[in-house]
Design a binder for these strands. Structure first.
Length: 328
RNA sequence: CCGGGACUUGGAGG
């Protein structure tokens, strides 16, 4: 567990391989960590291996479900669901919540809802799993209805994660009036120092066209993280304020926040929409050369768009044919 | 005694 937490998953896995007496907790630790930190495939393999050796409990099951969820593996998820039922875990709130999530990610909201209804104890996480599932599948009415039921009927208070969820719904289908309503709730209930909440709030304001409020939220934060910077830069770019994007990028680096892939997506997309070809090319170059980030398909696409939109069709075509990713 | 579930920002077009 220590090696996983120190970002040394490789070492952890090697160690695990070497041990000859491996108990259930060790299996649980390793599988959960794999599922959580970018090795869902490995998590599933280990889940199966552990199962064959007789190591299986609610923790390994839970991790396997999480892996299926992130890999969007409907069949495997269903099989694990069956196993959970067989072993009598299907009423466990954690397992049930993971099932809701897994089915939601697989776009099977009927099964997600059934898993939810099966739960004898529904806590705030179970509700938010369901609500976010509805939102991810664009079932906006169901999401909002479930929220009201949770809040008014079952008197469960929204936590930070759910608030973030609701704000992302606002961003998609509501206006800044609903944002303001939630904003006031956030202040009244002491969520206004929460970075997750503020990031969601500023994105929602921006998507609802209220860039001023988005700015206010951003500058009011004293715990800005990379998501905060990316979100405000994206917001400014989408509203055409390209020079502010450039300034903020500088500022971001000065404050010691490392730009990531999404940072460059925001900048490149902003450059493209404002025809700033030279700057865009320069940022793209700096991405790998100064920031040690390998451009992904998204960044190449921005670049193709940048060139194409500015009329450099030959170069755009050439880039599509030579970029290191298969074009989609 | 040790392992466990939901969430915010990200490419083109419409």
């Amino acid at each position: 567990d220590m090696y996983f937490n120190g970002d040394n998953s490789e070492v952890a896995l090697k160690l695990f391989d070497k041990f000859h007496s491996r108990n259930l907790v060790m299996w649980g630790t390793v599988i959960s960590n794999c599922a959580r930190s970018g090795f869902p495939r490995k998590a599933l393999d280990l889940y199966i291996a552990g199962f064959k050796h007789g190591f299986l409990d609610s923790v390994t099951l839970l991790a396997a479900l999480r892996a299926c969820s992130s890999l969007v593996l409907n069949r495997e998820g269903k099989a694990i669901h069956g196993m959970a039922v067989k072993l009598g875990f299907s009423h466990d709130t954690f397992i049930g919540t993971a099932l809701i999530d897994m089915y939601s990610k697989c776009k099977d909201m009927v099964s997600a809802r059934n898993a939810f209804l099966t739960l004898s104890v529904k806590d705030d996480v179970s509700w938010s799993s369901l609500i976010s599932g509805y939102a991810q599948n664009e079932c906006w009415d169901d999401a909002v209805k479930a929220f009201y039921k949770m809040h008014h009927h079952h008197q469960i208070k929204p936590n930070a994660v759910l608030i973030a969820c609701l704000l992302s719904i606002c961003a998609r289908v509501f206006t800044n009036l609903q944002c303001k309503e939630i904003h006031s709730y956030i202040i009244r209930h002491g969520f206004d120092a929460n970075a997750l909440v503020n990031n969601s709030l500023l994105a929602a304001y921006s998507k609802c066209g209220d860039l001023g409020s988005a700015r206010t939220v951003f500058w009011g934060m004293d715990n800005k993280d990379e998501v905060s910077w990316n979100s405000i830069m994206l917001a400014l770019g989408q509203h055409g304020h390209i020079d502010e994007v450039f300034k903020l990028f500088k500022r971001m680096k000065e404050t010691g926040t490392k730009p990531d892939h999404q940072t460059f997506t925001a900048i490149l997309s902003a450059c493209s929409h404002t025809g700033r070809v030279a700057e865009g090319l320069e940022y793209f170059r700096s991405m790998s050369e100064e920031h040690m980030l390998k451009p992904k398909l998204e960044q190449y696409t921005c670049l193709v768009d940048l060139l194409g939109r500015a009329g450099y069709l030959e170069q755009a075509y050439e880039l599509i044919m030579t970029m290191p990713h298969p074009p989609d």
